[in-house]
């Protein structure tokens, strides 16, 4: 994938560009807001990574201008401003996701992939399917290999999120945000226990296991290659 990185801190920018390239992506890096806007308008990218505080044009204005020109390229805002109202401001300006500095690279990568995939547009489905696991959104039922599985409401929500992003890495923070609307990380890894319970129900006694733990990043629901 091809990303445009607009970040004025040269060390942070170099590090991030290098890490993204090592993950197999193409990165255009600029350190100035106006320049970033012009490149975003004249070139095609899969997603933009935009810092908020930038020289010549701040990140939010950049995104607003981009949206006014009718561009729908997904934008991930990265900022040291972490309060909930700052996040809301970022999303109102037209950002698609908001990541607070400092962040783990795996978190940023997971979110970028989700953004790009979302942009490619999944059709409105009523039934989600991964291998022989089926989730019926209307009846709110789950089957694996034709066998019904009973899930608690929260487990259902977690599984739904994982299935909507099947094949992608989903981080603990993403699950907390989407299922609980919590924009903070509790001190204990509470999500891990939810996942292990969910795994007991959907993977135990079935083959192959679908719910994987991605070390240092999160989880992914995917068919083995």
């Amino acid at each position: 994938m091809k990303f445009l990185l607009v970040e004025d801190d040269p060390v942070a920018s170099d590090y991030l560009a290098k890490a993204l390239r090592e993950s197999g992506h193409v990165v255009d890096a600029v350190d100035d807001g106006a320049l970033g806007l012009s490149r975003a308008l004249h070139e095609t990218h899969d997603a933009l990574i935009v810092d908020r505080m930038l020289p010549s044009l701040d990140g939010l204005s950049l995104i607003e201008s981009l949206r006014k020109q009718g561009r729908t390229t997904p934008v991930l805002i990265v900022s040291a401003l972490g309060e909930v109202d700052e996040r809301v401001r970022g999303l109102r300006a037209g950002g698609d996701d908001y990541l607070v500095k400092p962040y783990a690279f795996s978190e940023l990568l997971a979110r970028l992939e989700v953004l790009v995939r979302r942009d490619q547009g999944a059709p409105a489905e009523t039934c989600l399917r991964v291998a022989d696991l089926e989730l019926d959104l209307l009846k709110r039922t789950i089957q694996r290999a034709g066998e019904p599985i009973e899930l608690k409401p929260r487990e259902f929500q977690i599984l739904e999120y994982l299935m909507r992003h099947a094949g992608q890495v989903v981080t603990r923070t993403m699950l907390l945000e989407s299922v609980w609307d919590y924009h903070f990380d509790p001190q204990t890894n509470v999500i891990d226990v939810h996942i292990s319970r969910l795994r007991q129900k959907i993977d135990r006694g079935f083959d192959p296991p679908l719910l994987r733990t991605i070390r240092g990043a999160g989880y992914a629901l995917r068919e083995p290659d």
Partner: peptide, 22 residues
């Protein structure tokens, strides 16, 4: 400024849901 009228029971239920398995 981010004060809103909210349901205290919902808050309690959500948090308890999160910690139940742990």
């Amino acid at each position: 400024e981010h004060m809103e009228t909210l349901d205290l029971d919902d808050q309690a239920r959500d948090a308890a849901d999160l910690y139940q398995p742990v």
